[in-house]
Design a protein around this nucleic acid. Sequence first.
DNA 1: CGACGTTGTAGCAACGTTGTAAATAGGGAA
DNA 2: TTCCCTATTTACAACGTTGCTACAACGTCG
Lengths: 340, 340
Amino acid sequence: MRAATLKDVAELAGVSVKTVSNVVNGYAFVKPENRRKVEAALIATGYRPNIGARNLRRGKTGFIALVLPELSIPYFGELAGLIITAAQAHGWNVLIEQTQGTRDRERTALTSMGPHMIDGAILSPEALSAEDFADLDSRVPLVMVGEHAVDVPIDHVAIDNVLAARTAVGHLATIGRRRIAAIGRNPTRGTAALRLEGYRAALGEAGLPQDDELDVPVREYHRGEGARAMSHLLDLPERPDAVFCFNDLLAIGALRAAADRGVRVPEDLAIVGFDNTEESAYSVPSLTTIAPDKRAIAEAAVSLIHARSAEAAENATPFDVEDVQTPFALEIRESTIGRT
Amino acid sequence: MRAATLKDVAELAGVSVKTVSNVVNGYAFVKPENRRKVEAALIATGYRPNIGARNLRRGKTGFIALVLPELSIPYFGELAGLIITAAQAHGWNVLIEQTQGTRDRERTALTSMGPHMIDGAILSPEALSAEDFADLDSRVPLVMVGEHAVDVPIDHVAIDNVLAARTAVGHLATIGRRRIAAIGRNPTRGTAALRLEGYRAALGEAGLPQDDELDVPVREYHRGEGARAMSHLLDLPERPDAVFCFNDLLAIGALRAAADRGVRVPEDLAIVGFDNTEESAYSVPSLTTIAPDKRAIAEAAVSLIHARSAEAAENATPFDVEDVQTPFALEIRESTIGRT
DNA sequence: CGACGTTGTAGCAACGTTGTAAATAGGGAA
DNA sequence: TTCCCTATTTACAACGTTGCTACAACGTCG
């Protein structure tokens, strides 16, 4: 039992294949009577267009790729959900490629997705560097979300990471913390450098010294690493009274390590996270965090792909590389100001 | 600048299109010399097969659909990641469809994905009933993951929900809890009935009475609902000393509500969750939970689609409906036995 | 020396769709 | 009546790929 094709519908309705195609595509000049017959036949056969064939003919694929480290990371799960929804509004399906944040797999994802496969790609790279983009065939519209420390001419959507980090650390200084640590330094990660910059700027603005031992590097942005780093900070002869974590997972790990040591949050130690994952609103204590507008990020990214795609179709002169800054807010919760 | 096609490669290599196709597909009988020439031309042109055209010709799409409530729910984020990985091993890309757990969107997902689009679908339905499957064109292999309370002849992968719930509640009884509540009853949800059954069975086995007011219904399986339900339980004249939550999100919410009331976990109240999401290992206190083998679920589901797909291709007589039970474990953590 | 099998190559058709252009029908104007 | 215009429909080709089949070249064997 094959699926119905235009041909099947045409035979049943007693018209040509093309007329059926015209009806399906809303072409204006079809005799009302034929239109009715075709519509009846469409329903009777349960016709669904063969997307592959249509795209082959139209030269579009109907897919965009979403390249990210891992769906199991809450931030990416939430973002992916929003991107899928936004893409659907433009008639796109989303293919998700997981890279584990490794440069190798990010490169593979970039090169293996030929232009036959996808109409565009949204990347959330962690380890890609400028040269990886150099030999990239640029037929596919690309948008980076999150950050590009690398200076490549590619459209880009993100919050102002430096300002966000400054805001977070500024908040810690405002509530009287004087020994503010940071967890999340990482050499290969684009955002890490920016958030570190914001952290240092805020320390400067608050007149606080920079102490290298308060700035702990991590290998991964996972809970376990956050706990490890926090543990390390609590072992210092002079403990910090606050810590800025470069994402919520690290902060959750830090929270956990503090609890293990009997360190009270926020009385002894204030903690700020980054991402406002749903988890952060329900932790004990709840987590003060930077809340990027994820929906805005998702919609901006998809819109950019759409615009680039249209531009290519019309052979228009390309518009300048876009650098969309989406809004964010500081979500103040118990981990810095306690129960209210 | 178009993408390279077989024709381009053939012209460059000085052979026919078909010979290039033969090389690309690993056909044995190609003269070594021609093979070399073609391979060189392939690299020179950067040829990538047009998947759409290939699938059109082969009658396969290369995609499977994954229909689930929402990617932002940690359990589904984790599961989706594993399914994508498992599907890749079979050469499949995964299209994700989010339904928000509504019956309407689950039905739409089921009917709109024609067989042109996908080679199979993995469903994690929450609200579908038997009649929704009745008028389903069954050309696409379908696998349900999680639970089907509905009795339909569709392949199915899940843990033994009744046994898992019994194990969880049995654990609470074993550590001496006598007034054990349950959060998660829900009329439309397949798993809820099974977990409730396990809960009641375990109460019976432990010689504990069933008290209807201890069994709190929820609308959604989200953290907020867990907190609300827990709050309600803590308002009872006679508080429970333990609670079994039907998933981790509800448990995290319950944990939060307990903290808000100053109720100590596990001293005053033991909590068990379900799903073993990564979050549950790092909450304060960490959460005792049922840990399904998610990787096994993902791989079993994809394998089943693969088997059904092959069966259809060979016109074999269909094998019986499979009901794969994957293993689970009780992960005992602080929320029932405290710091160790 | 001819029949035959093995190895290698290529032409053609078809997958289901749509753009283009040509064909048809029905009016009304010349 | 003839011709042109408009409204509608249709045939055909093409998108890029691969299965089928034909065929050529080359040995091998009787």
